[in-house]
């Protein structure tokens, strides 16, 4: 906000944008239902209705599109694209992630509700891929947000992605896809890693 606007609106010195405009609560892990039957049922529902938020950061995004076409049609498996993080549960990072992109990835990831799953798509998310020695792209996505499934390849074909979805479903059904809780439990570690690369951190600790 420029000084001029601040003056016009009578915003004084002590005005802190971040605390004024953003909720500053930290996330807390929410354990799944204690009842095994309920838990399994919920996991089954989660596994069979997956709303995808695709983050087309790199060339990998091009491989996401065919999934929804007649040739591959993942809606058969209960997977649907969803344009808003609030309603999605699967976050697909579609390739290399530069530092600037990471900020947006973190923001979107945090805006997804628990339980949430992340799929790293392509080698770049695994170890940096061909950008492994770049000054500006990360190497390991799982140091910044919890990743449930990596689909390696440069680029992986849609078939590989479907295989990845299958694996994800298995994990969800087994109750092993608890990334959101992992994130909440190791919140400080993740934040440290994130802040190590993101220098101008003009957002709250956790983007609700």
């Amino acid at each position: 906000m420029s000084d001029e606007i601040k003056k016009v609106n009578g915003i004084d010195e002590g005005f802190d944008e971040i605390s004024e405009y953003f909720c500053d609560a930290r996330p807390s892990p929410v354990s799944p239902s204690a009842n095994r039957i309920v838990r399994n049922f919920q996991n089954w529902a989660q596994a069979n209705s997956i709303f995808i938020l695709g983050f087309g950061t790199g060339c990998g995004a091009i491989e996401l599109r065919p999934l929804f076409t007649a040739r591959y049609d993942v809606s058969r498996y209960g997977l649907f694209p969803r344009p808003t993080p609030r309603q999605s549960s699967l976050f697909i990072i579609g390739g290399y992630a530069s530092i600037k992109t990471m900020k947006r990835i973190i923001r979107s990831y945090e805006q997804i509700q628990n339980p949430k799953f992340v799929m790293g798509l392509g080698s770049c998310t695994v170890n940096g891929g061909m950008y492994w020695d770049s000054y500006n792209t990360i190497n390991r996505l799982d140091h910044y947000i919890p990743v449930d499934v990596y689909v390696a390849g440069c680029m992986p074909r849609p078939e590989s992605l479907i295989a990845g979805f299958d694996r994800l479903k298995e994990l969800i059904m087994e109750g092993k896809a608890e990334g959101a809780n992992t994130y909440a439990e190791n919140f400080d570690w993740y934040k440290n890693n994130q802040k190590k690369i993101i220098k101008n951190w003009n957002m709250p600790e956790y983007n609700w």
């Binding site: 906000m1 606007i5 004024e20 405009y21 953003f22 909720c23 609560a25 983050f55 808003t84 993080p85 609030r86 947006r104 990835i105 923001r107 979107s108 805006q111 003009n202 957002m203 983007n207 609700w208």
Partner: peptide, 20 residues
């Protein structure tokens, strides 16, 4: 529900610049 503030919205992965 967690009570949130006015900029806690999904703004296409951005943050809103000003309320105006």
């Amino acid at each position: 529900p967690q009570k949130v503030k006015q900029f806690n919205i999904v703004f296409a992965a951005e943050r809103p610049e000003t309320p105006e």
